[in-house]
């Protein structure tokens, strides 16, 4: 279902949706790939991943059928 990007993460990647790269099977692997592919993300205070609209921990498995989102530090209010 693709990888959704929001806020400053979208600006750093230059895209609002990416394809989940092959071979990535956990949230932690995805974070490592994102930080290596888009080094600008390393400047953020936090980088969370949501899987199917829930905040996810690093060892959570992910698949292309999941709705995955890259969540930079939130700043509502």
């Amino acid at each position: 279902m693709g990888l959704l990007l929001f806020g400053v993460a979208k600006d750093i990647a230059g895209q609002s949706i990416l394809t989940l790269p092959e071979g990535i099977t956990t949230v932690g692997e995805l974070k490592s790939w994102l930080l290596a592919t888009y080094p600008g993300l390393q400047q953020l205070n936090s980088l969370m991943i949501a899987v199917n609209r829930e905040y996810a921990v690093d060892n959570q498995p992910i698949a292309t059928s999941d709705e995955i989102a890259v969540i930079p530090p939130v700043s509502g209010g």
């Binding site: 929001f6 806020g7 400053v8 949501a50 905040y55 989102a69 969540i71 930079p72 939130v74 700043s75 509502g76 209010g77």
Partner: peptide, 14 residues
């Protein structure tokens, strides 16, 4: 509610 909203809800400002 407002403190938690600001900490957790995925909304961003530019």
């Amino acid at each position: 509610a407002i403190d938690t909203l600001k900490a957790r809800v995925p909304i961003w400002k530019k």
